[in-house]
Design a protein around this nucleic acid. Structure first.
Lengths: 136, 136
DNA sequence: GCGCCTATATATAAACA
DNA sequence: TTGTTTATATATAGGCG
């Protein structure tokens, strides 16, 4: 796509890979946005790096909405889903406690950082787009 | 991108919209695949139409893997009240207070503009489509 | 690491088969 | 309709500051 064609294989150079990642991540999210807008559909996306430093990137940016879409997907996919079964047979109290601990430990920070990163990564152009839409 | 530039708004013509949807859906998935391959990251995606006839499209094609990725995401982002979240950071780092306010502001803006909030869709899942795609 | 630039690779809207 | 083709819009690799 650019000056040179690149092979479809993991980029070895850390620097290049990171650079390419940021650029393409941005492009992918724009494409998702375009598809959703043009065709009136829901697109949900999670981009996770193996690097714990880097926050996950989500789409749509509203994590609540993303969760709704995911839940909707799970319901439609697995009417008799494994988790439902697990819930049923599992000691409920223990499970909830477990999740609470997790939430307290790191999840809070992760969620916030994810949002913050997303906002930071938004190009001015997109922010202006938001403003324009808001005015409408 | 093609012969003519099109406006970034829902395509009214059913025929065109469907056509565009299929084309861009494919393009989006290719981009997701490229990003995952080139940058060695995990990309998960669900594309749901409001039309129950149309199956949801997922990435990666292996629904088990998709579910794993989603679960991983949920583990890192348990539902936490945003105000609690903000309070947590403000108490901890007063220096960040200003930035947090800004972030919150932008956050609200983005939420308000949650473009494709077309509310609940009840798409039907047909993973067979992926099998077919794979065979091709 | 960010943003801008430019040349080139891709994606794709419309036409056509 | 589903698949090519084609002309044009976008995305983006590599440079530069």
């Amino acid at each position: 796509m650019g000056r040179a064609k690149i092979a479809m294989e993991p980029i070895t150079s850390d620097k290049k890979r990171k650079l390419t990642f940021n650029m393409r991540k941005q492009g992918l999210i724009k494409k998702a946005h375009d598809l959703a807008t043009l065709c009136d559909v829901d697109v949900s996306m999670i981009i996770s790096t193996n690097d714990q430093e880097t926050p996950q990137q989500i789409f749509p940016p509203d994590s609540n909405q993303l969760n709704r879409l995911i839940d909707l997907y799970k319901h439609c996919t697995n009417p008799v889903n494994q988790y439902v079964l697990l819930d049923f047979f599992m000691d409920r109290k223990n499970k909830m406690e477990e999740e609470l601990v997790k939430a307290k430990k790191k999840n809070v920070e992760a969620k916030y950082l994810s949002w913050f990163d997303f906002l930071d990564s938004l190009p001015e152009v997109r922010l202006r787009e938001f403003a324009l839409r808001l005015e409408k």
